[in-house]
Amino acid sequence: MEFQSCFDIIGPIMVGPSSSHTAGVVSIGKFIYELLGDYPQETNIVFYDSFAETYQGHGTDKALLGGLLGMNTDDSQIKYALEKAKECGMQYQFEFENICEYMDHPNTTIVTAKRDDHVVTVGGVSLGGGLSKIFMIDDEMVSIRLSAGDDFSILAKPYQRKEKVLVKAI
C-alpha cells in the first residue's frame, strides 16, 4: 500500500504540468537539499526511461534543480530554476539512460550531489500523484516515502548524521 492518505490522492498543491514528472521530482530534489543541509555546488543527474524522453516538456530538469535549491512543490519560481541554479553558481550536468538497474520504474533518477567535501548519491522514483520514494542512498538500498506535505528535514536526518560521520572519518 504505497498510497496511504487522502492527500496522496487529492494533492499536492503544486505548479504544473505533471505530478509525477514535476511535483514528485521537486520532492526528490528537496530531500537531497535537506540531506546536504544546503544546495549542492556540483551535481550530476541521470534521468531514466520516461524522465529521459520527456523531461523538457514536463520541466523535470527545472523541478529537480528547484528541489535541490530548496524549493517546495507549489513554488512559482520553479519555472526559473535553471537561471536560479546558475545565479547560485551551481554546476549541473544531465545524463540520459533507458533503464535503471536499481529500480524497475519509468520515472527514475539517480542524483550525485556535492556540497564542500560531502558527496551523496541518491536514487529517487516518482510513483505518480506527487508521491515519491528515495530507494538508494550511496550503496545502501532504502525506502523513504516522500509526500509533498511531509517535513523532509526530519526524514533526511538519520541519513544526514551518518554521512557527516563518514566524511569526518575520511
Binding site: 496522496d8 490522492i9 487529492i10 494533492g11 499536492p12 498543491i13 503544486m14 505548479v15 504544473g16 504540468p17 505533471s18 505530478s19 509525477s20 514535476t22 511535483a23 520541466g59 507549489d74 512559482s76 520553479i78 519555472k79 505518480g128 500523484g129 506527487g130
Partner: peptide
C-alpha cells in the same frame, strides 16, 4: 500547462 498552481487530482495531468 502554464506552470500555474493547481491541485493534483490524482495527478496534474
Amino acid at each position: 500547462a502554464r506552470m500555474g498552481v493547481i491541485v493534483a487530482t490524482p495527478t496534474a495531468g
